[in-house]
Simulated assay, not measured.
Amino acid sequence: MREKGVMAMMYGACEAIMKIAWLNGLWVLFTLGGGIVFGWAPSTAAMFTVVRKWLLGRPDAPVFKTFYQTYKKEFFKTNGLGFILIAAGTILFVNYQFFRVRADLFSIMISYATLIAGLMYFVVFVYIFPLYVHVQLPFVRYFSQAALIGLVRPLTTAGMAAAGGLVVYVLMTVPGLIPFYGVSLFALVSMFIAHRCFLRLEG
Rank of each mutant, 00 (worst) to 15 (best):
T49K: 13
L32E: 04
A21C: 09
G165Y: 13
P130M: 06
K77H: 13
A103C: 02
Q97G: 13
I128V: 14
Q97F: 13
A158T: 10
R58V: 00
W54G: 12
K73F: 05
V37E: 08
G150M: 05
T114L: 12
A162I: 11
Y169C: 09
H134Y: 14
F67T: 00
L131E: 00
C197M: 14
A161W: 04
A45M: 04
V135T: 15
A41C: 05
F38Y: 12
L199V: 04
Q69T: 11
F122A: 14
L119D: 08
I193Y: 06
I108F: 12
F30Q: 01
M47H: 06
F76G: 08
L166I: 13
V124H: 03
N79C: 04
P179H: 02
Y127C: 10
Y121M: 09
R141T: 08
M109V: 13
Y132A: 09
F106T: 14
Q97D: 09
T66S: 11
V63I: 15
I36V: 14
V135R: 15
T78I: 01
G89W: 01
F192L: 10
S43P: 02
Y127S: 07
R153Q: 04
G57F: 05
Y11I: 11
R141S: 08
P138I: 01
F93W: 15
L85P: 07
